[in-house]
Computed example of a mutant assay.
Amino acid sequence: MIGKIRTGLALFWMVAASLVLVPLQVISMKTGLWPETVILKIWHRAMLWALGMRVHVVGEMVKTRPLMIASNHISWTDIMAMGSRFDVTFIAKSELNGWPIFGFLSRLQRTVFIERERKRKSGDQASEIARRLAAGNAMVLFAEGSTGDGNMLLPFKSTLFGAASMAIAEGAAEHVVIQPVSIAYTRIHGIPLGRQHRPLASWIGDMDLVPHVGQLLAEGGLDVEIRFGEPIDFSARSSRKEATRLMEERVRDMMQQSLGQPLPVR
């Protein structure tokens, strides 16, 4: 009963907040009266409040541009956690663009959609990401190419770093800073999550979205930890495979730090 009441109240808050904030975001995108990320941050924070999710940050996002952020990926809530704190733009799989609600919301924050299975379009998509990088957008790349279970890191895909190479090759930038970021769901209601319960937050593969949203709304009380690592400078002489290896290694180390010694509840 408590879970149903909580879910109902949370859904009411999410809808009410969206009815107010979405039109303001549309106005922002069409007129430029204020930075687009202002409303986005408020919306993400409103959604996290409804979910009962708290975000903890270790380290800082570098101020140098062009900047690509290489992160692991666990759930759709990763976007809200990052978007609630930082001025970033996301790179997402093309399927998201067709989803009834999430696709529309993703377009409101100018997400770049990529079709990994269609090589003919990969050049155009990398070029769009390169253009955004050159324009000063901090682009978040979920480098695993899929979502993990919250316990282990999947191998990073070097092909996804092609946009950094293209930005340099096209003369849009002399170099691109790539910064590793780890995301870890560490506690529920203040109690550290163990290996068995960490998948509660994860949204993997063909898992239905609506039941997962309902489960998180009913549970509430999750803590997510975002860690920023040491960036690398990627230039025309850099090896894409080596950059991928370094990012994967650093993200794995930071993720294990968060899972092994989560920050205390404040």
Rank of each mutant, 00 (worst) to 15 (best):
K157T: 14
I191G: 09
S239N: 04
F104D: 11
R250F: 11
G162M: 00
L141F: 03
L263G: 12
A81L: 07
H73W: 10
A70K: 04
R6P: 07
R45A: 00
E60W: 13
W203R: 00
A169D: 00
R195E: 15
A167S: 04
A143G: 11
H73V: 04
P262C: 11
E128S: 06
E219A: 15
M166W: 10
W49V: 09
A134V: 01
E115W: 01
H73R: 11
M82C: 14
K241A: 12
S28F: 04
G214A: 15
S239H: 12
D223P: 08
K41V: 05
A126I: 14
V213I: 15
E230L: 13
A143T: 02
S71K: 08
R65N: 01
L48I: 04
M61H: 06
A243G: 01
H44R: 05
T147P: 11
A164M: 09
M247V: 06
E95C: 05
R85C: 09
D78N: 12
Q256D: 07
E225S: 14
I114V: 14
I232A: 13
I191W: 15
R187T: 08
E249G: 06
W203P: 07
S127H: 03
S18K: 05
R110N: 15
E36N: 11
F156K: 03
G205E: 02
H56R: 08
R116E: 03
T244A: 09
S127F: 02
L48Q: 00
S75G: 12
F156V: 04
A50L: 12
A143F: 03
M68G: 02
Y185Q: 02
L154H: 11
S75K: 06
G59L: 05
M254H: 07
A173T: 02
K121T: 00
D78K: 12
M29P: 10
R6D: 10
M14V: 10
